[in-house]
Structure formats: C-alpha cells, structure tokens
Amino acid sequence: MGKKKTRSIVQEFNDYFGTGTLDDWQRLCRDVGLEGDLSSITKCRKALRTVHVNIHDLVDAVKQGQRPRRFRNAQELAEYTLRTRKIYPKRFVKEMGPVKALLRNIL
C-alpha cells in the first residue's frame, strides 16, 4: 500500500473517531452494530473484541450512512483483508485506542 493511501486511512479513521471520549467510543460501537450496556469506555472496548470488521470498510460505510460488513470470525476477516489488501498499518496503532480494539492478527 502506498504512503498516501496509508496516511489517508489513518487520518480518515482518526477524523471519524474523534478525541476518544465516551461518546466517540459509543458511536463506534453503534456504527458496527453493537447494542447493550455501553456505559463506559472499558465496556465499549470489551464489546468491540467480539466484532470483526475491516477498518477501511468501516470508514467507507460510515461515510455512506451504512453499517460495515461484519465477519463471523477473525479468520474470515483475515482472508477478506488479505484478498482485498485493505490492511490498516500496525505501526499507527495506539496501545489503548479504538483501532487496537478492532485490529485482528491476520497473518
């Protein structure tokens, strides 16, 4: 993936997510289709562990007012991600950030 495309997805996700307030985390959970008790960032982070979405697709879906495709498991997500080459660069992942909650080991 080129540097421009890498910077683009990182910036687009950061713009979408915001500053990391509870409202930002709750919006992310809703946008991927999660419901239930999302009353803290910790609960949001835990809930997101069960979700398998491609981050590129998430950003695109939100722009279009849709929900991203959710995969049944990490293996399905990995196969799709490698096939489409829609890989979020690991070097831009913050330890406790939202991307970390969505990231899956695909290799």
Results as ranks from 00 to 15, higher is better:
G65S: 10
K86Q: 07
I106R: 11
Q11R: 15
P98Y: 03
I55Y: 00
Q26L: 03
L22M: 08
F71C: 07
E35A: 15
L107D: 13
A78V: 01
V59K: 04
T6H: 05
K3C: 09
D57Y: 00
G2S: 12
V51Y: 02
K3I: 12
D24A: 09
V51T: 01
Y16Q: 04
L48I: 14
Y80S: 07
I106L: 11
Q66P: 04
L102E: 03
A47M: 01
Y16G: 05
H52V: 05
K4I: 11
G2Q: 11
L48V: 08
K43M: 11
L58F: 04
D37K: 14
G2I: 02
F13A: 03
N73Q: 06
Y16L: 15
G2V: 05
L77V: 04
P89D: 06
R70H: 04
E35C: 15
L22V: 08
E12R: 06
P89G: 01
R67T: 15
L28M: 03
E12M: 14
R49L: 13
E12W: 02
H52F: 15
L34F: 04
G20W: 01
T84H: 02
I106K: 09
H52P: 06
S40Y: 06
N14H: 07
N14M: 10
P68N: 01
K100D: 13
I106W: 15
D60Y: 11
T81K: 08
G18H: 02
A61V: 05
S39N: 15
K63M: 10
Q64L: 11
A101E: 12
L107M: 15
F71D: 05
D24G: 02
K94T: 10
V10G: 03
G33A: 00
Q66F: 08
P89A: 01
K43Q: 10
K86I: 04
Q66Y: 06
L77C: 02
R104V: 09
A47G: 12
K43V: 06
V99C: 02
V32I: 02
T6Y: 00
